[in-house]
Amino acid sequence: MKKIIYIIMIVILTYFGKFQTEEKNSSKEKVEYNKKNEIPEEVRGKVVYIPDGDTIHIVMNGEKFKIRFYGIDCPESSQPYGLEAKEFLMKNIDKNDVRVEVVEKDRYGRLVGKVYSKGVNLNELMVEEGYAWWYEKYARKEKKLEILQNRAKKDKKGLWEQDNPQAPWEYRNKK
């Protein structure tokens, strides 16, 4: 009887030990994935945090990603329209399902991409409604963003209501 119990315990410990090792290895693979700096073409996930108007944090398959919107730059939180940009994004994003077409990974380890919610390109929407600048320095070829920005300026939408709005990159450089 003792032998049977002993064998059962070994089988159970072996099974659970193997299961835990496989789980540890799979989490190591995730860490390894990040260390290799591989960039997925697309990520889909649930929004878990919105720090500002041009950055979101999403979770996909249990892994968290920081996403920086490609080609745009929103006012900083301490700038005029910084909080309004964040609020506008929060109202227009489906927190349960976003799709990101990844363009690159930036020097801070964030994925940079075009963010879609309910089929709408949020990068373009933020510029079109005057809550973001076209970030020409990093997205020269995104001529649609230029057109949308010019239209928002002409219509005095959002931050363009101001006489002389300060671009966020200029604001950051003065700090």
Rank of each mutant, 00 (worst) to 15 (best):
Q79A: 10
D97Q: 04
S77K: 15
E42C: 03
V127P: 09
K144Q: 09
G109L: 04
G130N: 05
N96R: 08
R44H: 13
M90V: 03
Y70T: 01
I72P: 09
E84H: 07
V98H: 10
P165D: 03
Q166H: 01
K36E: 14
K36H: 14
E170S: 09
E63K: 11
I67W: 04
V103S: 12
Q166V: 15
I8F: 14
W133F: 14
K28F: 14
M1S: 13
K46R: 11
F65V: 04
V102C: 10
E76S: 09
S77N: 13
F69I: 04
T55E: 01
W134K: 02
K114E: 10
A152S: 09
L159R: 00
K114Q: 10
R68E: 02
S117H: 09
E101V: 07
Y138G: 00
E101N: 13
E136P: 05
I58D: 02
M1E: 12
K174Y: 06
E142R: 00
V115E: 11
L148A: 05
L122F: 11
I147Q: 09
A152I: 03
K64M: 11
D52C: 03
N121E: 07
V103N: 13
K144M: 04
I58G: 03
E142D: 12
T55N: 01
K66A: 14
V100P: 11
G130E: 11
N150R: 10
I10H: 02
F88N: 00
A167E: 15
F65M: 05
K18R: 10
K175S: 13
I56P: 07
N121A: 00
Q79Y: 12
I67S: 08
D94Y: 08
N173R: 12
G82W: 10
W169Q: 13
T55K: 01
L89M: 06
P168R: 01
C74I: 00
F88H: 03
I72W: 07
M1R: 10
D155M: 09
L125R: 06
M60F: 01
N96S: 11
V47T: 01
G113S: 04
E170V: 15
K156I: 00
V59A: 06
E142S: 01
G45Q: 00
S27P: 00
G53W: 04
G45E: 00
G113M: 04
I58E: 02
E136M: 03
K157P: 13
A167T: 13
I7R: 05
T55F: 02
F16H: 14
K24N: 15
I39T: 14
S26N: 14
D106C: 04
K175V: 08
K46E: 15
